[in-house]
Design a protein around this nucleic acid. Structure first.
Ligand SMILES: [Zn+2]
Ligand SMILES: [Zn+2]
Ligand SMILES: [Zn+2]
Ligand SMILES: [Zn+2]
Lengths: 148, 148
DNA sequence: ACCTAACTGAGACTCGGTATCAACGCAAAC
DNA sequence: GTTTGCGTTGATACCGAGTCTCAGTTAGGT
């Protein structure tokens, strides 16, 4: 069973109809190698109406098929979601996005609840920096002429 | 020396010109009791051009006079910034915003760097929930008929 | 007072997303 | 297999947030 079929099944289970347009959007989304914008999807699904693409993206987000990645400039990207709740780090240089679940965010949230006396029910966390590849590709600037 | 004058001085120090429009925007911003949107400022500075208000808000953000608060629905709010780098918790019910600096976000960022092999240089973190007041105003639903 | 680069502001424009609504078509009931 | 109805579609208009343009203004240094 393909990823597309699996996603379609998820739609059916939730009582959503499986239409040709939705199928086309799902195919386009699942074919994306990394993160992408709604605009990327729009370009690949010319036959599907603009509104429908936006609606389907929302649907897929609700179904946890994709997750949203907030870029530093405020742009909203998407990426196929493998896990449940998680966060992202985005490389400022090449745009690579990595998930992370290892860090104990829940501990922070607990502290946060205590410190502010808020009952924290949701949060938004993204990291921005440089991936290992991009760091390796640059001459280390912090040490002056490391080898001569 | 008023807050407005202090901010104006900050502008001058950075080599920005002090114009009547900027002064008007600064006054409107500093008079805000809590968080606000650009639209709120626009409404209070009718004499100032739309573009100028946006430009000035950007300027004030760069000067750390205000900070931006990302709401759960994606709306961008501002608030007068008292401290340096900090984060926010937003009450979903009444919209109250609280700063927090107490929690050790830097530890999380350090872990994060290690786990992903990214050099994390920036991050975006907001919490959403219910403030103490709003919780107190509701009959506790988790315990059934606590007092009768 | 003079000069000029910084700034302004009206308005057009872009961009991401939503509302409208008649037409359509999926899927369940018959 | 046909009917039926409601979820869905998509063209298009609209919206809000923010940027661009560019001619005109002005702060502030000399
Ligand atoms: Zn989280
Ligand atoms: Zn990179
Ligand atoms: Zn932080
Ligand atoms: Zn509240």
């Amino acid at each position: 069973m393909s990823d597309v079929d699996l996603t379609v099944e998820r739609l059916e289970l939730r009582g959503h109809r499986v239409t040709a347009s939705r199928r086309r959007v799902i195919e386009a989304v699942l074919a994306r190698p990394s993160h992408f914008t709604v605009d990327d999807v729009l370009r690949e699904t010319r036959a599907v109406g603009r509104a429908t693409v936006f609606r389907t993206m929302k649907l897929l987000t609700d179904l946890n098929v994709v997750c949203r990645v907030l870029f530093e400039d405020g742009a909203l990207h998407y990426r196929v979601s493998t896990r449940g709740h998680h966060h992202h780090v985005v490389c400022r240089e090449c745009g690579r996005v990595e998930d992370f679940t290892t860090c104990d965010v829940s501990a922070l949230v607990r502290d946060l609840s205590r410190a502010t006396d808020y009952e924290i029910e949701g949060h938004w966390l993204e990291g921005y920096g440089r991936c290992s590849d991009c760091r390796a590709a640059t001459v280390p600037a912090s040490r002056e002429a490391p080898g001569g």
